[in-house]
Computed example of a mutant assay.
Amino acid sequence: MQGTVDGFTYGLVTPLVAYLMACLGGALGLRCTTRSMLVARSWRAGWLALGSAAIGSGIWTMHFIAMMGFTVKEAPVHYDKPTTFASLGVAIVMVGVGIFIVGYRGATGTALFTGGTLTGLGVASMHYLGMAGMRLNGKLEYNTLTVSASVVIAVAAATTALWAAGQVRGFLWSVGASLVMGLAVSGMHYTGMAALSVHLHGSTSTPGGDSPAALLAPMMIGPLVFLCLAGVVVMFDPMMVMGKPDWRPAEKRPGIPAHPVVPHTRRPSPRPWRNRGHRGSRAPQSW
């Protein structure tokens, strides 16, 4: 029997809050990725790891905030905690691989294509693994064409976001990129949800138990706290907030040498003709 699916139980509240969370995670991740390109190589891995965790946590939180508004009219929906948290791990790891490629190879050419593809696949994998953690008296089925469209959206969004992070520009540039990334990630989520249909087993029953919001809210406390802490780290780094006209390292700016050359000043040679005993007069010359 076909189940009646409703993805907007709370109206526009869950889509808007989910979009804001995607933007927050994207903004923090992109700023960390940009910062990694401006520090010494020994610090780069730390910033990239923080950016990967921020983007992965933001996307995961966005997904399950949106899922708070998802219900099946004829059956209660529950979530398997190990699978749900496994989707968070997949998001962080796969996004991290893509970000590390771009962080060390640059946001151009093959590195950008590879990193964007892996990051986008990580976003899509998180979505569908999180959906696999749903437990209800029925079976989930997906439309293949719509699923493919959602994966393409995820890859395109990730590639665009990593390209924007690699431009190493000011704060407003990253804010704009994160807004676009949040829109694309949310679009990927709801495109994937549009591909879903639920086939119930047996007779219908009245939903009972806790609501999806009550089930999912406790699981999101950890990622939300992490995003807040990541935001504090970013805010207290002056180079992350107060942008400069030119963010490129000195060695990459045209006309500025990597190591400034200090002109050699020649020491004046002592004057053999100066007479120390008589200031300002010459010593007598011998012929």
Rank of each mutant, 00 (worst) to 15 (best):
V262Q: 12
A111L: 08
V77L: 15
I256T: 14
R267W: 09
M134T: 14
A149D: 05
M235C: 12
I92Q: 02
T159G: 02
G103E: 08
T108C: 10
G120I: 00
W47K: 06
G122I: 06
R274Y: 02
T83K: 06
R135Y: 01
G56H: 01
Y19Q: 07
T4F: 06
F70T: 07
G7W: 15
P270S: 12
A27H: 13
V95L: 10
W247T: 10
R279I: 04
T61N: 10
V97L: 14
L183I: 00
A27N: 11
G106N: 08
H259T: 09
K244P: 06
G277V: 10
S42R: 14
P207K: 03
A53S: 13
A107H: 00
W273N: 13
L224W: 10
L216F: 04
L229V: 15
G46Q: 05
Y10S: 09
P272E: 11
H264F: 11
G56Q: 02
M67H: 04
G51D: 07
G109V: 09
G222Q: 03
L129V: 15
S52Y: 07
G231I: 08
M94T: 13
H201Q: 14
R169V: 04
V262Y: 02
R31E: 14
V180E: 01
F64Y: 15
P218G: 08
L227S: 06
I65M: 06
S203K: 13
I55W: 01
A158I: 11
A250Y: 08
Y79S: 10
H127A: 02
V72M: 00
M67V: 06
R271I: 14
A66Q: 04
A213M: 09
V97M: 12
L179W: 09
I65C: 10
L224C: 13
V147A: 06
H259D: 13
P257H: 11
L162W: 00
G120V: 05
S211I: 01
Q2N: 14
I59R: 03
R248S: 12
M193F: 08
A49K: 08
M242Q: 13
H189K: 05
L118P: 06
G89V: 02
I153G: 06
T206I: 11
V97G: 11
I59T: 15
L136R: 01
L200N: 04
D210F: 02
P257E: 09
P254H: 14
V152L: 15
G243L: 08
M134K: 00
G209M: 00
R248V: 09
G3Y: 02
G109M: 09
L216K: 02
T9N: 12
G187V: 03
H189D: 03
V232N: 03
T34Y: 11
A250H: 10
H78W: 12
G56P: 01
N275A: 13
T110W: 14
V198E: 02
I153P: 05
I65R: 00
V93W: 07
A45C: 11
G58A: 12
W43T: 10
T4K: 08
A165F: 07
P15T: 07
P238M: 09
L227P: 01
T83G: 00
S174G: 03
V97Y: 04
P272A: 10
I55A: 01
G231E: 04
M239G: 12
P263C: 08
L183C: 12
A213Y: 04
Y10Q: 07
L112W: 07
E74M: 03
A86P: 09
T84F: 10
G89H: 05
A40N: 13
V168A: 07
G202K: 09
